[in-house]
Measured scan of single mutants.
Amino acid sequence: RLTVMSLQESGLKVNQPASFAIRLNGAKGKIDAKVHSPSGAVEECHVSELEPDKYAVRFIPHENGVHTIDVKFNGSHVVGSPFKVRVGEP
């Protein structure tokens, strides 16, 4: 089962990169992540390998409000996905 680490749920800033990590815990497959902005825009997140069992997911929010992040592994949502994060002040 995958572990999502260091996902900041609030206090993110517009046009500043945000990232979190995913540990695969021995699982093999493909991570896919997309961020949905409050206006409905959908953007791919950048996924990069940090070490053999750990990946970083990076995105840049372009507007204030609550964004939804879909994180999928081999086509299925990971536990807790979709995640909600707040950009800007509430």
Results as ranks from 00 to 15, higher is better:
residue 60 I to G: 03
residue 90 P to K: 08
residue 80 G to Y: 02
residue 4 V to R: 02
residue 16 Q to G: 01
residue 33 A to K: 00
residue 2 L to V: 12
residue 79 V to R: 08
residue 61 P to F: 01
residue 72 K to T: 08
residue 40 G to N: 10
residue 90 P to V: 09
residue 27 A to Y: 01
residue 57 V to A: 07
residue 31 I to W: 03
residue 47 V to A: 12
residue 45 C to K: 04
residue 39 S to G: 09
residue 65 G to R: 01
residue 30 K to Q: 13
residue 21 A to R: 06
residue 90 P to C: 04
residue 45 C to S: 07
residue 6 S to K: 15
residue 71 V to H: 00
residue 26 G to N: 08
residue 25 N to G: 02
residue 83 F to K: 07
residue 38 P to V: 00
residue 88 G to Q: 05
residue 73 F to V: 05
residue 11 G to Y: 14
residue 61 P to C: 04
residue 85 V to P: 08
residue 67 H to I: 09
residue 31 I to L: 11
residue 46 H to I: 02
residue 3 T to C: 15
residue 40 G to V: 08
residue 63 E to L: 11
residue 52 P to V: 10
residue 19 S to Q: 09
residue 1 R to N: 11
residue 70 D to T: 12
residue 84 K to N: 10
residue 80 G to R: 08
residue 35 V to T: 05
residue 6 S to W: 13
residue 51 E to M: 06
residue 46 H to R: 04
residue 75 G to W: 07
residue 48 S to K: 11
residue 55 Y to E: 10
residue 79 V to Q: 08
residue 31 I to H: 01
residue 79 V to C: 09
residue 72 K to R: 08
residue 77 H to M: 11
residue 32 D to G: 05
residue 62 H to F: 08
residue 30 K to I: 15
residue 43 E to K: 04
residue 80 G to I: 01
residue 10 S to G: 13
residue 78 V to C: 06
residue 5 M to F: 14
residue 34 K to P: 01
residue 14 V to L: 12
residue 17 P to E: 13
residue 61 P to V: 02
residue 74 N to D: 13
residue 79 V to P: 11
residue 53 D to Q: 05
residue 35 V to S: 04
residue 52 P to R: 13
residue 81 S to K: 05
residue 89 E to G: 06
residue 86 R to F: 10
residue 17 P to Y: 08
residue 54 K to H: 04
residue 50 L to S: 13
residue 59 F to Q: 00
residue 61 P to R: 00
residue 44 E to Y: 14
residue 61 P to S: 01
residue 70 D to Y: 09
residue 1 R to S: 03
residue 81 S to I: 00
residue 80 G to E: 12
residue 6 S to N: 15
residue 72 K to S: 07
residue 85 V to R: 15
residue 41 A to W: 03
residue 81 S to P: 01
residue 9 E to H: 02
residue 76 S to W: 07
residue 72 K to Q: 14
residue 24 L to N: 05
residue 73 F to C: 05
residue 69 I to A: 09
residue 53 D to F: 07
residue 6 S to C: 14
residue 49 E to I: 09
residue 37 S to W: 09
residue 70 D to W: 08
residue 86 R to I: 14
residue 48 S to H: 06
residue 2 L to F: 06
residue 41 A to E: 06
residue 34 K to N: 14
residue 11 G to P: 05
residue 8 Q to H: 08
residue 68 T to C: 13
residue 26 G to P: 03
residue 55 Y to P: 12
residue 38 P to G: 01
residue 85 V to H: 09
residue 89 E to T: 07
residue 36 H to V: 13
residue 89 E to M: 11
residue 89 E to D: 12
residue 89 E to A: 11
residue 15 N to R: 02
residue 75 G to F: 10
residue 85 V to Y: 15
residue 27 A to V: 10
residue 40 G to K: 06
residue 65 G to P: 00
residue 90 P to H: 12
residue 26 G to Q: 01
residue 27 A to L: 06
residue 49 E to P: 12
residue 19 S to P: 01
residue 65 G to L: 02
residue 48 S to P: 09
residue 71 V to W: 02
residue 81 S to V: 02
residue 29 G to R: 01
residue 36 H to L: 14
residue 61 P to N: 01
residue 82 P to V: 03
residue 86 R to C: 07
residue 81 S to G: 09
residue 53 D to L: 03
residue 24 L to Q: 01
residue 11 G to R: 04
residue 38 P to C: 08
residue 67 H to L: 10
residue 46 H to E: 15
residue 46 H to G: 08
residue 57 V to Y: 15
residue 37 S to Q: 07
residue 12 L to Y: 01
residue 22 I to C: 13
residue 23 R to D: 06
residue 17 P to K: 14
residue 13 K to V: 04
residue 32 D to V: 15
residue 35 V to K: 10
residue 2 L to I: 15
residue 4 V to E: 10
residue 32 D to Q: 09
residue 66 V to Q: 11
residue 56 A to L: 10
residue 59 F to D: 00
residue 33 A to T: 15
residue 36 H to W: 11
residue 1 R to K: 13
residue 69 I to G: 00
residue 82 P to I: 02
residue 85 V to N: 09
residue 7 L to I: 08
residue 52 P to Y: 14
residue 40 G to Y: 12
residue 47 V to F: 01
residue 48 S to V: 14
residue 90 P to T: 13
residue 18 A to H: 05
residue 21 A to Q: 14
residue 44 E to D: 14
residue 43 E to M: 05
residue 64 N to A: 12
residue 11 G to D: 11
residue 49 E to A: 13
residue 71 V to M: 11
residue 37 S to H: 03
residue 34 K to E: 15
residue 86 R to G: 14
residue 62 H to R: 12
residue 88 G to D: 10
residue 52 P to C: 07
residue 37 S to I: 13
residue 42 V to R: 12
residue 80 G to C: 05
residue 28 K to E: 05
residue 88 G to F: 14
residue 69 I to W: 09
residue 12 L to N: 06
residue 29 G to T: 02
residue 73 F to R: 03
residue 75 G to N: 13
residue 81 S to Q: 03
residue 43 E to H: 07
residue 88 G to N: 07
residue 18 A to V: 15
residue 17 P to T: 05
residue 22 I to M: 12
residue 72 K to G: 03
residue 26 G to F: 05
residue 36 H to K: 14
residue 6 S to T: 15
